[in-house]
Amino acid sequence: QDAKLCERHREKLHYYCEDDGKLLCVMCRESREHRPHTAVLMEK
């Protein structure tokens, strides 16, 4: 099964943002929008 990719950055989605309920890639996780949020690394 292929991992889902971030629509914005075309990177694999490794994080779940608990504040927004969205899946994030590393680039999104470090963005100004999500940096202050609680995001957890998803298990494989």
Rank of each mutant, 00 (worst) to 15 (best):
Q1M: 15
Q1L: 11
Q1I: 03
Q1W: 07
Q1S: 11
Q1N: 06
Q1H: 03
Q1D: 04
Q1C: 12
Q1T: 15
Q1P: 07
Q1G: 11
D2W: 02
D2G: 15
D2T: 14
D2E: 14
D2M: 13
D2A: 13
D2V: 13
A3D: 11
A3C: 14
K4G: 12
K4W: 07
K4L: 11
K4V: 09
K4A: 07
K4R: 13
K4F: 11
L5W: 03
L5V: 10
L5D: 02
L5A: 04
C6H: 06
C6D: 00
C6F: 01
E7Y: 14
E7R: 06
E7M: 03
R8Q: 13
R8D: 04
R8L: 15
R8W: 10
R8V: 14
R8H: 15
R8M: 10
R8G: 08
H9P: 00
H9V: 00
H9Q: 03
H9D: 02
H9G: 02
H9F: 00
H9Y: 00
H9I: 00
R10W: 03
R10H: 11
R10E: 09
R10M: 12
R10C: 05
R10Q: 14
E11W: 02
E11N: 05
E11M: 07
E11H: 05
E11V: 02
E11K: 09
E11G: 03
K12E: 10
K12S: 10
L13F: 14
L13K: 13
L13Q: 08
L13V: 13
L13S: 07
H14K: 15
H14Y: 15
H14L: 15
H14W: 10
H14A: 14
H14P: 15
H14C: 10
Y16D: 05
Y16P: 08
Y16H: 05
Y16L: 07
C17E: 05
C17Y: 05
C17F: 01
C17A: 08
E18P: 04
E18G: 03
E18H: 10
E18Q: 09
E18V: 07
D19Q: 13
D19N: 06
D19V: 09
D20G: 04
D20P: 02
D20W: 01
D20H: 02
D20F: 12
G21M: 01
G21D: 04
G21L: 00
G21K: 13
G21W: 01
G21T: 03
G21Q: 11
K22D: 03
K22N: 07
K22P: 02
K22S: 08
K22H: 05
K22A: 12
K22M: 11
K22T: 12
K22E: 15
L23W: 12
L23H: 07
L23P: 05
L23N: 05
L24E: 07
L24V: 04
L24H: 06
L24Q: 09
L24Y: 03
C25F: 00
C25T: 02
C25D: 03
C25A: 01
C25G: 03
C25W: 00
C25I: 00
V26Q: 14
V26D: 13
V26H: 15
V26N: 09
V26R: 14
M27G: 10
M27D: 08
M27F: 12
M27R: 15
M27K: 14
M27T: 13
M27C: 14
C28T: 00
C28K: 02
C28M: 00
C28H: 01
C28S: 01
C28Q: 03
C28L: 00
R29I: 02
R29D: 03
R29V: 10
R29W: 02
R29S: 07
R29K: 14
E30W: 06
E30L: 02
E30V: 01
E30D: 11
E30Q: 10
E30N: 11
E30K: 09
S31D: 10
S31M: 07
S31Q: 08
S31F: 01
S31C: 11
S31Y: 15
S31H: 14
R32P: 14
R32G: 12
R32C: 01
R32K: 12
R32S: 14
R32A: 14
R32E: 14
R32Q: 12
R32V: 13
R32T: 13
E33Y: 04
E33N: 09
E33M: 03
E33S: 06
E33P: 03
H34T: 02
H34G: 03
H34P: 04
H34C: 01
H34L: 05
H34S: 04
H34I: 01
H34N: 11
R35Q: 08
R35D: 10
R35E: 12
R35G: 09
R35P: 05
R35N: 04
R35H: 10
R35M: 08
R35A: 13
R35F: 06
P36W: 04
P36N: 00
P36D: 08
P36A: 14
P36V: 08
P36K: 12
H37T: 04
H37S: 05
H37C: 06
H37V: 01
H37I: 01
H37Y: 01
H37P: 04
H37D: 05
T38H: 13
T38M: 04
T38F: 05
T38V: 07
T38A: 11
T38E: 08
A39N: 12
A39V: 14
A39K: 10
A39H: 11
A39I: 11
A39G: 04
A39C: 13
A39Q: 11
A39M: 10
L41H: 08
L41A: 09
L41G: 10
L41Q: 13
L41D: 11
L41R: 11
M42P: 06
M42R: 10
M42G: 09
M42F: 08
M42T: 05
E43D: 11
E43V: 04
E43T: 06
E43F: 02
E43I: 01
K44V: 06
K44P: 08
K44N: 15
